[in-house]
Design a protein around this nucleic acid. Structure first.
Lengths: 240, 240
DNA sequence: TAGGATATTTTTGCATACGAATATGCAGCC
DNA sequence: GGCTGCATATTCGTATGCAAAAATATCCTA
């Protein structure tokens, strides 16, 4: 048994703040400013930031102060592509070891999702929609897959907060339901196909800019700044 | 572009030492003992160690001194399972964007592999066999996939050094050749199938103890140690 | 001699200190 | 007014110090 170390706490806190969009992409994350609220020193904060960096959630490099990462469009596509592959695999793995307990877990989760949507709680809805995929990964009982999936889902949240339109999570509930249905009915390949389409449609809803108004100018600029990332210091945050 | 920071150097050095089996699983890695050869302080070493931990190459937790990780058998299977999924995806991605340049890259690599095997250079052969998979991941031009693949291949090296028999990399060269051939001939699904079989056969050669003499007692013991080691450490993110 | 309690040494977790690189603000110039 | 160049304030990278937890050695007793 293990109690979380201080670094863990800071890590989780920052992570949560980022994927809940309390910290917007591009936001600066000075080490001591983060440390003081927790009453801890930079050493610990630095460790947490390093971890967030490997998760792709913050960009830190050179000697510049760490910032919440601003994923580029290619990066976003890359994330979705890998995620899609792993989600398919996860479906197959869970299908292979299907049990009534698993069915019950899914059923319970879907009820929660439904309730949240019925209550109109957008925030909770989105969180539960993400949780669905984590649940799937957990049920594979493959720790590696779960770890990667967790990272990928987090990154998708971040991507959503850069490119996404507010109502992106609309009908995921029904899609999730369909997937579980196919699994429960013992049609794994159908479930795989549904999951694949689900991820593609999430990606499309998130990244496809043609439908609807484009992102704000500020978003575009900061996206570009994300591309340049490590070299030029030309990005003009003072201009915003 | 970007000069490697000191932590990078230490990280790479340790990583290399681990996957080349100069540091055997279970070996202790005290921070200052590592630092002194490089003339750096524990702070930097600690960062490198942390990164290796997220790579799954060292186990560090509680206040115990860090050690080279000893993957459990389940962990090994999990790694291979995820790797297999990503390798298949990588094949499809590269098949989709096949060009003469890519063909040349593969051809060049296969020549190297052949040469190393002809020269009987076991060490180099193994390294090149791993490099083949990294090359494949690079050619997808998907940074996320490349990152994960790199981690997985490293972990496989470590797994090999716990469970593997010395001659495990024997006929990978011909298998690699077959995969490239199928790709070049424009038969992507055949390449996918070959890759899948290739990974399965690597896994079997590595993990299947039934054929041939069992592992040494020391191996069994350290494997057990590995099981205990990981129990309280990761894989329990919902243990609030 | 074996077993166990205790003292000693390692080694870690965390805080702090200091030089160096970067960002910011301000004066002067076009 | 807007831009360039320097002075100052931030913020980072890294080393070191100290208390506490492990690991190891030591000694005492049966």
């Amino acid at each position: 048994m293990k109690q979380p170390t201080k670094a863990d706490t800071v890590y989780q806190a920052l992570r949560q703040a980022i994927i809940e969009q309390d910290l917007k992409p591009g936001a600066k994350l000075p080490e001591d400013e983060i440390g003081t609220p927790f009453g801890i020193s930079r050493t610990v904060v630095r460790e947490a930031l390093a971890r967030l960096h490997t998760d792709g959630l913050v960009s830190t490099g050179g000697k510049r102060t760490a910032t919440v990462a601003t994923p580029s469009l290619e990066e976003a596509k890359d994330v979705f592509r890998v995620r899609r592959a792993l989600e398919r695999e996860a479906i197959r793995m869970v299908a292979d070891k299907w049990t009534p307990e698993i069915a019950a877990r899914f059923a319970g989760h879907l009820r929660e999702e439904d309730a949240a949507r019925a209550a109109g709680d957008m925030k909770l809805s989105v969180r539960l929609a993400e949780r669905f995929h984590i649940l799937l990964a957990e049920l594979t009982e493959n720790a590696i897959l779960l770890g990667y999936m967790t990272q990928l889902v987090s990154r998708c949240s971040l991507i959503l907060s850069v490119y996404g339109r507010p109502h992106s999570a609309d009908c995921s509930v029904c899609e999730h339901g369909g997937i579980v249905e196919a699994l429960a009915a013992g049609r794994p390949e159908e479930a795989v196909k549904l999951m694949d389409r689900h991820i593609v449609s999430v990606e499309t809803r998130t990244l496809d800019r043609d439908a609807g108004e484009g992102p704000s100018l500020a978003d575009i600029l900061s996206r570009h700044a994300g591309d340049l990332d490590l070299e030029g210091n030309e990005a003009g945050p003072k201009r915003l």
